[in-house]
Design a binder for these strands. Sequence first.
DNA 1: CAGTATCCTGATCGATACTG
DNA 2: CAGTATCGATCAGGATACTG
Lengths: 116, 116
Amino acid sequence: MNPDDACPIRDILNRFGDKWSILVMVQLHRHRVLRFSAIGKSIPDISQRMLAVTLRTLEADGLVKRKVYPEVPPRVEYQLTTMGESLIPLIRNMVEWARENRGEIIRSRNAYEGRE
Amino acid sequence: MNPDDACPIRDILNRFGDKWSILVMVQLHRHRVLRFSAIGKSIPDISQRMLAVTLRTLEADGLVKRKVYPEVPPRVEYQLTTMGESLIPLIRNMVEWARENRGEIIRSRNAYEGRE
DNA sequence: CAGTATCCTGATCGATACTG
DNA sequence: CAGTATCGATCAGGATACTG
């Protein structure tokens, strides 16, 4: 009843409400481990900047682990942490819900447009 | 072609990534039915404008039903649609996850700050 | 009461160029 | 390869005032 009940979600969920975080996490989950450039290829329309920013944020939150190999040329590998993996089932549920309801939402939007 | 067309999750989830949609839906779920001003009171820091905008979007998407009573002064009641209700369990899971992991995320953020 | 209409600010995001 | 730096555009969101 207290609005604070939903407050933790605001802080946390806002991170995944951004444009790329969920997409990056899904790719990392699918491939287990990916290099920077490989994530970029798996998400063709993400810019280098936004990929870096997104990975930095996910890393800071402890959802993604970053491992640097001291080689030349440099190699950096990313993978989900245990906490990051624990979020995957929830993301999957959301995707599933979106798939099931997308048609109705689109229809509703069109109807709403037409009624004014 | 818009990438949102190909990726249902981006189109749908972006709506709930905004600042107020989830909070409004949670309030409507808890009270079953609420008037405009009552939602505002249950979410003290939402502006009148953002409440109206959020409700309009949720209504357009078919997640919230709006009922106007032809009275003076006007009375308008909002409640979740069936589709809106179907989203509540997923939101609850997200809130639950956020509660369980919030501590670790905060600690991770602090550690990340300190390491550079 | 239940909203609109304006105006404005800060954040988000993208393009481009550059680097260890 | 794996980034960072800089700039500019776009947009979500807030403050305030007004209305049927």
